[in-house]
Nucleic acid binder design. Structure first.
Lengths: 336, 336
DNA sequence: TTGAAAGCGATACCAT
DNA sequence: ATGGTATCGCTTTCAA
């Protein structure tokens, strides 16, 4: 059957304690026995059982990653970048899609704790403050990414969402737009983006639409489409749309086309995230880019340093969004 | 600290054996003590440590999923559907991107075995027959998805790739195309698709392009683009392109547009997979659909039944592709 | 119906 | 420099 430390010890004529020491490179063992044990390990193709050592308090080298939806390209790309950085340090990811459901979030967290993950990386959409706070109190390694939690100390890699919203609005305003529709789900990062958006509006003496309302449920193409149709059919239709993610923006573009109008001639559209789909849609989507690769790397680094107990103080890394101008936005056009 | 089975036993004035029995609903215990123990468990918020029971040979309820690239929408969507089905049965997924590198595949497999995963689901791109065969020989639960391994018995959920290629070619031929370029990486499923493609060609007395060659490296937009440019600049440029995934097809469309031509007026493009991006490009992509949701469900079901030792014989589920006609394909046009 | 005790596969302290 | 052994948290006979 499976070869264990006992098999190695027996074959090498040493104790399991000695074998353990050569595995972990701890204590002192003569070069000679070390070499001997190493040889036997190779010969028997011995693979230490990580679960067993986890029982003794060692790391499992596994991190739980909770995201809203793996099928959303933004989260898939983010997960991939986290995975890559983790891989460099021997970590694996258990990836869980929560669909923004608190019930699933709780379930996954307690399940993964029972599986002795070394820590959790929580991505955007996590509204479940209580659970996170509890984790932090227990001193369980947690890091937040693409989502800011200003309330208590926790390692965080956030985008400056406020700035993102501000950038989007400023650009649209520069193009001459004064009536801009907003599409967003009610999550923290979007509230920030809208706050930044409003700031730019204020600075230009423009008023925030009074009839704005968040979309419910998912942030998918269909929701973006529906909301856009609603906007365009309203009494005072906007000349530009700010969608809080690329998927929603695509829905907006589809709606505009379906209603017989053009992007950006009749209506401009700006997205958020800069995922692969922004380059694919026609016209290519102007969007606010999140530095996904960097976010993944940074959050994994924070996680690892926390697991290793390197620094006690919690760190907040804020990354900056950038405007990527493509072809879905244009000057306000009197055509309207 | 963490509450263990001992804490529960002490608090309930029973032995840990008894507690274990009520946890697992095994052996016989009186309703009274059962209720008592259950209460204490709730009161102490006891969460059995899965690693400890795994050491005793129980399941970890964790499956390793190896895919080429999580950032590829097809695999992200597939992973999501596998995750969903697994979730219904209490399974979690450790997701690993291999980048088609045998070295990574091997590394992940042995690492996850050390972490006592209950089984592996291997997705398309896995060319590493030796390792898989070894797993099968060891009777380690393995299931293959989106990839066929005809050589030895292993649970498989495959697409009828041959049929997919056949469908694509037939459709293009019906449209009047006789010179069709093919873009594909050299993996098993693509070889099958091309075989089906060739079959349709043969049936129509058309000849397979003699200068066809596989692309190297990744199957990304850029590779699709480069290959298409090469085709269009050749002496006898094709009037249609068959790309073996949607990403490559999108690259093809981009290349065609960049060269000042239109899709499908000048060149038709057909993709494969029917991921979300097929609906997003302009023109919307005609493609061969893989039933992703079904594939995920079926492969997880096979995995679970194998883990539970339900049936010994290995099963091969073959799902059928379907042609999704959108707007990237059109009749062969004399314009050329 | 319940419990004592022997593992599972590793780590780590304490002797030797 | 090496080894004996307790221990981690749980499962599972086997007795009582």
């Amino acid at each position: 059957m499976k070869v264990t430390i006992y098999d190695v010890a027996k074959e090498a004529n040493v104790s399991i304690a000695t074998v353990s020491k050569v595995i972990n490179n701890t204590g002192r063992i003569s070069e000679k026995t070390k070499k001997k044990v190493l040889n036997v390990m190779k010969k028997l193709d011995y693979q230490p059982n990580i679960m067993a050592s986890a029982l003794m308090g060692k790391q499992t080298k596994t991190i739980g990653l909770l995201i809203p939806d793996l099928a959303n390209p933004f989260f898939a790309e983010l997960a991939r970048s986290i995975e890559d950085r983790g891989h460099e340090f021997g970590y694996n990811l258990v990836i869980c899609s929560t669909d923004y459901k608190e019930e699933k979030e709780n379930k996954y967290i307690s399940l993964l704790k029972r599986k002795s993950v070394d820590g959790f990386i929580l991505a955007s959409g996590f509204e479940n403050l209580g659970k996170v706070e509890q984790l932090v109190k227990e001193d369980f390694p947690v890091a937040i990414v693409a989502r800011d939690f200003p309330m208590f100390p926790v390692n965080t890699v956030a985008l400056d969402d406020f700035m993102g919203g501000y950038l989007a609005a400023s650009y649209l305003i520069d193009l001459g737009h004064e009536n801009i529709g907003i599409i967003a789900r009610d999550v923290w990062s979007n509230r920030e983006r809208i706050r930044g958006f409003k700031q730019a509006l204020d600075e230009n003496q423009l008023t925030f639409p009074t009839d704005f309302e968040y979309i419910e449920k998912m942030s998918h193409i269909i929701q973006g489409k529906n909301m856009t149709i609603k906007y365009l059919k309203s009494l005072n239709p906007p000349t530009a749309i700010f969608a809080c993610n690329d998927l929603l923006a695509i829905g907006a573009i589809q709606a505009i086309k379906e209603m017989g109008m053009n992007v950006p001639e009749h209506v401009s559209v700006i997205g958020f995230d800069n995922t692969i789909i922004a380059t694919i849609v026609e016209p290519p989507l102007t969007t606010i880019a999140q530095p996904i690769q960097n976010m993944g790397k940074e959050v994994m680094d924070l996680m690892i340093s926390q697991i290793n107990g390197e620094k006690k103080e919690k760190i907040r890394v804020t990354l900056h969004p950038s405007l990527i101008v493509r072809e879905s936005t244009g000057k306000f056009n009197i055509v309207n």
